[in-house]
Amino acid sequence: MTRPFLSRAIGAFVLVSLAACRPSGNGPAGPGTEPPETCAPTTEAPAPEPLHWRRHAAFVTDVHAALALDATTGCRELDRTPCGDVHLVALGGNDVFGAGQYEPVARPLATTPLVVDRFVLGACSNRVTLDAEATPVVFGMLDLAASTVSRDDARATASELFRRLLRRDATNEELAEIAELAEETNARDFAVAACFAIGTTSEAVLY
């Protein structure tokens, strides 16, 4: 029987945790035989299901929804083509009509981290520009023309970004960490950096 690597890894982990179940000197055991007496039910908490890749459709939609963007206002290559379309395969989608790729790649490619960075940075930069030029949608706590950012404004911005990009409330530690990005930085750069830092966490890419 061939099984995916992941299943083997899970199997190996559970094998270790069930090591006490191996009958000692009583011969092999299985459902066709009585379970060995030494096989006590495990009391440890079960291992969690491994993390999954938030693939193309959900990743692109999530970033766009979080920053109130769409394919025309989000990240675009050469200002012509949506980054999500250009980097479809590296983001975990399958290019069925363009490349005859009928199934997506099983796991992230070597270029996936670069593309994630590219996509989020492009989206964050565009959102900051749009907010600076009109009524702000995401960065309303900041004066994007200011050369400095107060600690409170930085924390408020971080809190908003956590809710938008990771769909949860930030911890105090996380707020403090993001607020540090505001030191010696103008408001616009801070906005992009905070958005990028939160939007490219493993939590944003995996689930």
Binding site: M1, P28, P31, G32
Partner: peptide, 13 residues
């Protein structure tokens, strides 16, 4: 460590 028949029952090789 597991009988041939038992392996076939649970679906391992």
């Amino acid at each position: 460590g597991v009988d041939d028949y038992d392996e076939l029952l649970v679906g391992t090789s």
